[in-house]
Design a protein around this nucleic acid. Structure first.
Length: 483
RNA sequence: GGCCCUAUCGUCUAACGGUUUAGGACGCGGCCCUCUCAAGGCCGAAAUACGGGUUCGAUCCCCGUUAGGGCUACCA
């Protein structure tokens, strides 16, 4: 493919990495890697008011965690830096001045108060709100006079009064917007910082970005950006506007209706592979019936042509299923490592379990788990003796004769030497036979005595994991407590 | 309000005018398996928003309606 593919992810550091942002970053990354291009990270911090301490570091570490590695960006110079907009202010100012000289932009001295009034008037008259171009035709002398008087001002772009602009979007096809509905957008704010519109165009050009792949919320302002490219006499990049990620009620995915930060999902125990896989499928699919994709496979298969146009609801159920699938497929050694980490932050942190034991717990519990924490929560009895017995199970499974039967069973178990699953099973069957009861009459009370709960892995598997002595001990413990 | 975008099962989606009784996945229901809970296997319910065109033939193309969303800042 083209060797000069360069794309970028350009978040503003206002907090955490949004899952929609991760999807945008991922699609850019996949597109770049698929085509042998470069993926650039650029920080759009031109709004001082929204600046959040530590947000950039957090953004980068989350992106790295997900495996979406950028080739160029803050801390990873690539010859097009700096990659932080607040460090490029002179560049924007020069370009804005250039536009003024060419007659494509002008100084505006209107106060926020006046703009507010204009807007209020327009609203009252039920007109669409836009700047009334009050300063568009100020004389050079007046501009000079007010400038030297130190009046605060902004620089606005001079949008043609009539005509329309048509452009092609890789995902949406042809889009047309009339200049009439475009505002004379502010490009340099009175604090000297550029607005998004100027900065994005200048940087995308200077950083040789070939494809602008971003969220659909930017579609309406794309004509302004294209106009700026034309004002500067620059070649246009290709545009691709991604469908939005939605809340269950179909509004734009937002806080308030659940978690939106990638960190939140990470903290909840979702694997990065599951999150990446899931997010990739929100708006893209391979065209066949495969569902499980590694990052490498996504790189191999991804194409913008297969990105859909309509918004996608973030469906946690399916993410859960994916997490479950990834846990099921994970190499045992990796599960072991993760289980140790999980235990280290659990109430069992002080206890020590050897690898062989933990591995047997993993084998027993894996297909019943979606998250690593399920091992600790659902399999608590593998890490501590039961300190209580589920009252409902007790009511259903513990009969008056159970205590006596478990005593016999315990005695039978004590006669076993290093029993395997089969020996435990045979011992139970023989005991049931001699007591003239069904196997299940022993199985259920025994499960309750040993685990404290009514569900879980096969009983004999549990017995083997715990071992004869522990099983006998727990039976005696239960007999005492359930007298 | 204005502008723009979108519209297939509840959700994610396949179908790029005919091979379709519209396919898959999650979720949901049932059955099997079974010591429980899962897993697994099998089966099932479930969609082309509506109305006009174009065409021999429309989920697919065009127009309109409706619905939803986005944008409409000296925020990104």
């Amino acid at each position: 493919m083209s060797p000069n593919i360069r794309v970028r992810f350009a978040p503003s550091p206002t907090g955490y990495l949004h899952v929609g942002g991760l999807r945008t970053a991922l699609y850019n990354y996949l597109f770049a890697k698929h085509n042998g291009g470069k993926f650039v990270l650029r920080i759009e911090d031109t709004d001082q008011a929204r600046r959040v301490e530590g947000a950039v570091e957090n953004l980068i570490s989350t992106l790295d965690w997900a495996g979406v590695r950028f080739d160029e960006g803050p801390g990873r110079e690539g010859g097009y830096g700096p990659y932080v907009q607040s460090q490029r202010l002179d560049i924007y100012r020069q370009h804005a001045d250039d536009l003024i000289k060419k007659g494509f932009a002008y100084r505006c001295f209107c106060t926020p108060e006046r703009l507010e009034e204009v807007r209020a008037r327009q609203n009252a008259a039920k007109l669409s709100t836009s700047y009334d171009r009050h300063c568009r035709n100020l004389t050079a002398e007046e501009v000079e006079r007010r400038l030297s008087a130190g009046e605060r001002n902004v620089i606005r772009m001079k949008v043609p009064l009539e005509g329309e602009l048509t452009f092609n979007d890789l995902i949406r096809g042809t889009v047309t917007i009339a200049f009439e509905v475009l505002d004379d957008q502010v490009i340099i704010k009175s604090d000297g910082f550029p607005t998004y519109h100027l900065a994005v165009v200048v940087d995308d050009h200077l950083m040789a970005i070939s494809h602008v792949i971003r969220g659909e919320e930017w579609l309406p302002s794309t004509p302004k950006h294209i106009l700026l490219y034309k004002f500067f006499g620059w070649e246009l990049p290709k545009f691709a506007h991604l469908p939005l990620l939605l809340n269950p009620d179909k509004s734009k995915l937002s806080k308030r209706q659940g978690d939106v930060a990638v960190e939140d999902y990470r903290a909840k125990g979702y694997f990065k592979e599951a999150i990446v896989n899931f997010v990739a499928f929100l708006g893209w699919n391979p065209g066949d019936e495969r569902e499980i994709f590694s990052l490498e496979e996504l790189v191999k298969e991804f194409s913008l042509e297969r990105v859909g146009k309509s918004g996608a609801v973030f469906n946690v159920e399916k993410l859960n299923w994916l997490n479950f699938e990834y846990l099921k497929r994970m190499p045992e050694g990796d599960v072991l490592t993760q289980l140790k980490a999980e235990l280290a932050r659990s109430p069992h942190a002080e206890k020590s379990f050897d690898d062989v034991y933990l591995l047997s717990v993993i084998r027993a519990l894996r297909e019943r788990s979606t998250f690593m924490r399920d091992f600790v929560e659902k399999g608590e009895y593998f890490f501590q003796r039961p300190d209580q017995y589920d009252p409902e199970v007790l009511k259903k499974r513990w009969k008056p004769e159970s205590a006596g039967q478990l005593k016999s069973l315990s005695a039978a178990f004590e006669r076993l030497q290093n029993p395997r699953k089969e020996e435990f099973e045979a011992a139970l069957h023989q005991t049931a036979e001699s007591l003239k009861v069904k196997n299940s009459d022993l199985i259920h009370p025994l499960r309750l005595a040993v685990t404290g709960v009514g569900s879980g892995p096969g009983l004999y598997d549990i017995l083997v994991v715990l071992g004869r002595d522990e099983v006998v001990h727990r039976i005696n413990l239960a007999l005492e407590k359930l007298q």
